[in-house]
Amino acid sequence: MEKIKNISGITRFSLTELFGPILIITAASCLIGFSSASLMLTVQFALCYFVMVLALQVFVGNSGVLSFGHGAFAMLGAFVSGLLTAPVRIKNNALSMTDLLQSIADIQVNLYLSLLIAAIVGGVVAGITGVFLMRLNGLAAGIATFALLGVAYNFFFNNTKFGPGSQALPGVPKFQNLFIPLLLALVALVLVYLLNVSSIGRTLRATREDNLAAPALGINIIRVRRIAFALSGALAGLAGAMYSHVAGTVQVQDYYLGFTFLTLSMLVIGGSGSIWGALVGTLLVISVGQVLLMMEQGKAIFGLSIDLPNGARAIFIAATLVVALLWRSSGVTNGKEFAFPNFKKKSN
């Protein structure tokens, strides 16, 4: 007999699992973010990545179906929110946007409203495409979602009516402080946790573990996947919008292959089965990158100064990813939710 698998992410609502990550994110963001101005920016980017990884966790982690299409929803969210909030004066005068539709150029809404609109647009587009895409499985689903990303990239890269095309959109307002992205990330975290312990989350994980037994128990696989896809599309839209307000610009390349794979790697390295895994993966990848960056710039870390040649950083990050997967293929957290470390000796 096959050994019963160590099934990840079986959760009943537990305060520890929810508040552990909340405390860690808040503490880490404040401690690191307020230590220097450059780290403040890193923390804000990290929070955007975390929301994106959460979006991937909802769908990819719970359903086990690979999606490259979330980059498309993030791209959409970024363009919607960036174009809605950039000042009218800039949109009408910037050289890169002479072809922009007049109705887009003349509109300007509040930052918070635009974030909400970005999430809704991401969710609606994911919901509509999901109706078709969720009929697919395995590699076909992966390639189909990739095709979605390809279409979105090709469209936004070349179209100058609905955006700046291949150029950067200037004048996107930045978040005034750390607390707005932090709060958004925490809200996303709570929503995803509630979703994961709801019947949708559980049935979705059931379909991941055994997609013959799940329908036999009355689960409509396509239906739960469609719901999860739409919800995670909304989160991806929010993540993309947040990213644009941290970067202060929107550039289509920022949401393409690099972004998609970086966030997927964060999820897989941390452990795709849980929110805790999403957090650990994001923290790990960002901090490895940051530490290497500081070394490259010749800064001392904990009083230790190691000089790295330029270009070594990128090699190390990629190597870390490969080594992490070789070392622990189911992720650093093994797909488990947060728990206080148990120092008692195990009985078996």
């Binding site: 794979f261 997927l264 790697s265 990128a314 990050i317 190597a319 990813l321 490969v322 997967l325």
Partner: peptide, 23 residues
């Protein structure tokens, strides 16, 4: 380990080699 993990690993390897070529 499953196709998803191998795919991500192959992507990591791909980026790694690109950076090595760059060097």
């Amino acid at each position: 380990t499953g196709p998803a993990i191998m795919l991500i690993a192959s992507f990591g390897l791909s980026v790694l080699l690109q950076r090595v070529y760059e060097l």
